[in-house]
Amino acid sequence: MIEIRFHGRGGQGGVVASELLAQAAFLDGKIPQSFPFFGVERRGAPVTAYSRIDDRPIALRTSITAPHVVVVLDPGLLATERVTDGLKPGGLLLVNTTHAPETLAAPGGVRRAAVDATHIALAHGLGTAMLPIVNTAVLGALARATEVVSLEALSRAVEQFVPARPEENRLAARDGYLGVRTVDGTAGPSVPLPTSPRVAGPSLPEGPMASLSSERIHTAAWRTFTPVIHLDRCTKCNFCWKFCPDDAIEFDAVGFPKLRLEYCKGCGICAAECPPKTIEMVAEV
């Protein structure tokens, strides 16, 4: 049995990627099992999805804590999520990145693979610059780097099950397959599965409502694009403040909007709603 864990953000297609992989593996004659876990159902929030592929029925219904393969759809997650937790020695880390695989940090003995899925997706018109849909390009790369699934089965699965633009997605999978680069792991100790230190029950507050505030939860790590407000054209209409779902806009002393960047998830709603279009969304990387 091969176990694969996907790390992405809500809206990038990580969940669909794990489902498509299951469809493709099934077409290859294997028995698949794929599923996501998510907490906050918001565009941009970190999402994890899992796939198991085996030749016989899978007698396990748990999340995957010791994967053979980790797939990262958004390079920004490398800085905020512990994506390589539990990754097996001899396993593979596959990242959507413009950087070379040699630059990827991974536990010792883990092969590293890089594919520029963002540019492949955009070249085929999949998603937008703010939210490219990279899943099919990444799956193409996965097919090449691991051989868990054939490119042929993957292409057929894309044609049958991708609801929009199947041809562009099939080409993106092919380009991902052709464009991935893999290097061997560095020498070094493999890292055992770490676990979060458990907060002992008695030290938690009595009841979950005590002394918690979203003020203390900085969600800026979700952001891939940052709003930049051009104040010269701002009319102080307050629309950005009204529409911001995260209360990430406040006002300066003279009434101009000011960003609370630690809470801004880069959703772009302010830019879309701003009547004189003074807000520009600028890519972070």
Binding site: V15, E19, A22, Q23, F26, I31, P32, Q33, S34, F35, P36, F37, I58, R61
Partner: peptide, 12 residues
Amino acid sequence: EDAFYLSHTVEP
């Protein structure tokens, strides 16, 4: 059916 373990799990 159990949330996620079946609801969102795809299998044959």
